[in-house]
Amino acid sequence: MANHIVKVSPLDGLAKPAGSNVSLEERRFLGKVTLRGNPENKDFLSKVKDVLGVDLPLTPLTYVAGGAYTVHWVGPDEWMIHTQEDGEHALVLALREALEGIHSQVVDVSDYYVVMRLSGPAAREVLAKGSPLDFHPRAFRAGMVSGTRYANATIQISQLDDQPSYDVQVRWSFAEYLWNYFVEAAREFG
């Protein structure tokens, strides 16, 4: 039966940038889990580390990547964890079990958001068209993540390397709009 289950993404069938200076790929069905908890609670931090294998990033606008998980700072008591497709189920269970009795929230948001990878020499130019965030290397570098806005969409963006490459996370229902905006914005750069 499972073989016949159809999964859809809002980015199915959408055109990609035509040129070579901007590349856009969907990170299809990436696992995503929202974690909320008190960063001053040592117990919380250590229990989470036991599950994730890395420390929760407590410095604003940073993320840590280790093993199966990339953990993004979202707010002072909120993190966004990315993992491979379907990895979210085990992660949610593991975190909930580890955090039993500790005030926290673990929510599977794998389908609430869609992640796309924007990269290439003109990626910064594409971002500058719709976001008021400063993407200059002096202001935003690999290892950083931030919430911001791109045109009408609220996004979370993290920089992966100096190519530069970015992971852009957006709500499911804004994904088609954002993708098409990126494609149009990229057109002039070839």
Partner: peptide, 8 residues
């Protein structure tokens, strides 16, 4: 409120 950012 920083609603496009950290929502604080």
């Amino acid at each position: 409120v920083h609603d496009h950012g950290c929502r604080r």
